[in-house]
């Protein structure tokens, strides 16, 4: 169980004289998962990242990191900063060699010099830049520099990795490799990863935990359980086909390619093996993760199609659900929210 989210923001506001850059009444980023921050340029993504990286204190509001108030000065600030690393949108590499850059985080932490070379080599391997240690940074291409910056952040094995627009300067051929890398960082290193992109589809490919920022505000759909596909079966109950050939029925009146979301609160849960209506959206799976906070329980149900489900505490108690139980999730077609529809 991960009782505390990586970040919890409350009434966070950031402003510069005469302008509000960011206004977030409430937002959470779960621990140990990949989250995406989506929004057009100037939406406040970088502003939010700088707050999450503890580089800029917010003008107002409270930020919690792993359930504790974040610090923006003093020794605790340093301690927290050493668990969170931000990779800037256009990263700055220090003058010198790739090795000097990637080892920087180890150096400032006073890690013994003996472990620098293996950790640097490992981080460079992850970004496909093995053997680049002695290159001078001025001789790197833009894409290589970007990957060195990611390696530099990985070398310190942060609990939270913040990637501001990591795909912005990457050539098309490398995007899928970088997407795989983000998943790998999350799985292999167990790091919480938050990345930003202006590409909604890309965000959904990597995670179902997507936060959308528009003009400094979290847009209405802060969605999970995201699916996309072409609408089939014209009529009262059309559906889309998702991975594995499963159908998700949606409300009437849409056509073309859609991206939709099933709000976790709208999903009902019952033990597997009982009777069920076949025409509804029903999926069987196993409970693989449980978190509780604010009187609600957040569950992850992994099956052919995975879902995140939120239950009120009482309902959770009533059903006596435990980790590892097999359950059936169900929701009505009307509960499916259409986020984006393209002809």
């Amino acid at each position: 169980m991960n009782p505390n989210p990586a970040f919890r923001l409350r009434q966070i506001r950031q402003e510069i004289p005469g302008r509000t850059l960011l206004e977030v009444p409430e937002l959470e980023f779960p621990t140990g998962e990949v989250s995406a921050l989506v929004g057009p340029n100037g939406a406040g993504k970088t502003t939010l990242f700088r707050i999450l990286a503890l580089l800029d204190p917010p003008f107002a509001g409270a930020l919690e990191f792993r359930g504790e108030p974040a610090a923006f000065s003093g020794p605790r600030w340093l301690e927290l900063r050493r668990r969170i690393t931000l990779v800037h949108q256009t990263p700055f590499l220090f003058r010198g060699t790739v090795f000097q850059n990637v080892a920087f985080g180890l150096r400032v932490r006073g890690e013994p010099q003996a472990i620098w070379p293996p950790r640097v080599a490992e981080a460079l391997e992850l970004v496909d830049l093995g053997g680049f240690q002695d290159r001078f940074v001025i001789a790197l291409s833009g894409g290589e520099a970007q990957r060195v910056a990611i390696a530099r952040a990985l070398a310190v094995q942060p609990e939270v990795l913040l990637l501001d627009e990591p795909f912005a300067n990457v050539d098309a051929g490398r995007i899928s490799r970088l997407e795989a890398l983000i998943s790998e960082i999350n799985h292999r290193l167990g790091a919480t990863v938050i990345f930003s992109t202006h590409n909604l589809g890309q965000a959904f490919r990597l995670t179902s935990r997507v936060v959308t920022l528009v003009a400094g505000k979290v847009a209405e759909f802060g969605h999970e359980n995201i699916f996309s596909g072409a609408v089939e079966g014209e009529g009262a109950e059309p559906w889309i086909t998702v991975r594995g050939g499963w159908r998700i029925r949606i409300g009437p009146g849409v056509s073309g390619r859609v991206t939709c979301s099933v709000p976790p609160e709208a999903i009902a849960l019952r033990p597997a093996g009982g009777p069920g209506a076949s025409e509804c959206n029903c999926f069987e799976g196993e409970i693989t993760r449980m978190e509780c906070h604010n009187g609600r329980v957040r569950l992850r149900v992994d099956g052919p199609v995975s879902f995140r489900v939120v239950l009120p505490d009482q309902e959770f108690q009533r059903q006596g659900i435990r980790l590892g139980d097999r359950v059936v999730v169900s929701f009505t077609p009307a509960a499916v929210k259409i986020l984006e529809a393209k002809p």
Binding site: A53, L78, R81, T85, L86, F92, V156
Partner: peptide, 10 residues
């Protein structure tokens, strides 16, 4: 960017 980069790297 130098200062924030150094800070975020610890």
């Amino acid at each position: 960017r130098v200062r924030p980069t150094a800070l975020t790297l610890g």
